[in-house]
Design a binder for these strands. Structure first.
Lengths: 197, 197, 197, 197
DNA sequence: GCATAAGCGAGACGGTACGTCCTGTCTTATC
DNA sequence: GATAAGACAGGACGTACCGTCTCGCTTATGC
């Protein structure tokens, strides 16, 4: 690779203007109205400048959700107990329940599933929660707070899945009570013989 | 009723040819390669004929999954017990796990969520299962097979949500074991003090 | 309304409605905005009914100018003299100078030149005048009012041609003076040695 | 001077290919078979490239006659006499009598009469001759070759009009003799007392 | 310290598809 | 048995974007 850093350096200003314009368009008109031409026009930028960073509108859209404004979840406590699960889910619900999160979730399904950015998104929005949740539940397992034969991944997918389902398909409100209910259910199951809420 | 059945009747043949062509294109190239022009070409049909039925490619794509080939779930027994839940979920997994179902699930997220066809799809693919599941669980409640304070809707959304999540985002295989595991979990919960699988 | 017998109860009415609608459209929007669909819609008539009489929009347009409202020129006196030429040209100018005449002249050039209706139009608008003019000039020839070697057809074509040219291409006003001027010129020529106007 | 020469320059090659294709289509199938899609296909060019230059098929058709192949009339001698009129008319007849000229004349009538290109055409095909003819006749007037009270414009319109009329409407052959006859007539008039041809 | 290489905005390019409109033909039920 | 209604295959319209490709400039680096 000759010319590692020769030539004019890429303009930070242009890069940020593109992301800003893209975010605004998505905000105003929705993800499927995002076009490269529209972004270029709004950002006062040439189309090739956009293509230099992302190879299509899809990727740009995904990137929009990857920038610092959608921050990571706060760290869980170093030795988390089963009670931390509530906070985690609460935070995930809030994050996905935002306008941005909603659009992103929509967009997700249309994406080329093998793309790096799709994976990145999935990592950030779902797996991130899943990972933290795994940490919590495995700790709980060790401490005997939950049964040792529990499939932790399945458990988390049921919780996350429910959230995604209601968001994407049922378009139900995701209230605060929900979090308590779902935790209660996942803990006690639905069979008789467990104490009430 | 003026205009009720005046004029040349719509051609069943053309209608079916359109759906067939659309289905084939989706099968071969994916949902996002479906274009009205392509369908018209393949079906040997004029574009306006397509637009007479559906107002854009999205709607046509959704309609593709609404026709008889993707049939309703079989009826559950008239007085279903908790054991029927397994069959219901098994069938849903199979249906969504097909190539067609997978594509459809993908497509879902990009759709205009207020469109009639989106709702129709949701009804058929999700609510259909949800409704039958509700029947089963409410019966089980009455018979005392499950606790009376259980939120039946939430319970089903956790199961369905997990399926959708794994299909859309994690792209995990949806094996047969899964069904047993998820039912077990939802019945017993994850707290200690329940018998093993 | 309801005809007593089967057969053709509303034929005349439909026919006239078509012509009326066509005339109105041409009047309002110009000849090139005339479409069969538009006429059918406006006339409350099925498209095939129009096609039963005329085979395309062009023919219909021409037919519009063939109906009684654009009347024939008045008859010339039975034994016309050279002085009748002025009246003839005057009338022709007036007829072509009308809005309808103008549009018709425009349309003429776009027409399929071999169609019967094109010929019919030509007959009515140009040859009609030409014929009457020939009568006048041949009579004048016999009476010695003009030279015997004059090409009568050429002479009339120069007069009519000038009118058409100014109408179509130069868009000059066709005033009354013009008629006197052109007759004077065609009579005396432009060489010196003729008395002034 | 923003936008003066920014951006990729327009491709001369594409421009010429469009005109060539348009000319060929008109030549082969006639003016009313000229479609933007057809031209794009034949020229190996995108439709928007055509629309960048002309806003519809009509304008493109007119432009076809405006390019160098249909050249200007040759210059008349610097101090032209009445005898030059013959050459001028002869050339005009030839030009209009060509296949291309004929089609163009037809097309003329269908055009939006206020368009720039319509005017351009009129300028080139009619006014060009008219202007040169005016020069000739005014010179002749000064030298006393024709009467001083002659309306030069009217005279030329009669000649040109006759040509156009026969071309458009009568579809008469425009032979060589015609030129002599029309000049003779316009010079001498049709009254008795002038010498024979 | 000046050449060079890459980035920049602008915008034209060949394309594809859009959704609309109209053509001329056909197939019904109605009158 | 002609009519109105309107669906049909076809095809052109003019527009919007796609992703690529020049342009003439600008901006650093590194020779």
């Amino acid at each position: 690779m000759a010319g590692a850093k020769v030539g004019r350096p890429r303009s930070k200003k242009a890069y940020l203007a593109i992301l800003k314009a893209a975010r605004e368009i998505i905000e105003e008109a929705g993800t499927h109205r995002l076009t490269i031409e529209g972004v270029a026009r709004r950002a006062g930028v040439g189309k090739p400048t956009i293509y230099r960073y992302w190879s299509n509108a899809q990727e740009l859209a995904i990137a929009t959700f990857m920038n610092p404004e959608v921050s990571n979840l706060p760290e869980t406590s170093t030795n988390p107990g089963i009670s931390d699960l509530r906070n985690l889910i609460q935070q995930t619900v809030q994050r996905l329940n935002s306008k941005q999160g909603r659009q992103m979730a929509f967009m997700l399904a249309g994406a080329e599933t093998d793309s790096e950015l799709f994976k990145a998104f999935r990592n950030r929005m779902i797996l991130d929660t899943r990972e933290k949740g795994t940490l919590i539940l495995e700790s709980a397992k060790i401490r005997g707070e939950i049964r040792s034969d529990v499939d932790v991944g399945l458990c988390l997918d049921m919780i996350l899945g429910m959230i995604v389902l209601r968001l994407l398909i049922a378009h139900t409100e995701l209230g605060e009570d929900l979090v308590d209910d779902v935790i209660s259910m996942v803990l006690k199951g639905i069979l008789p013989g467990a104490s009430d809420t």
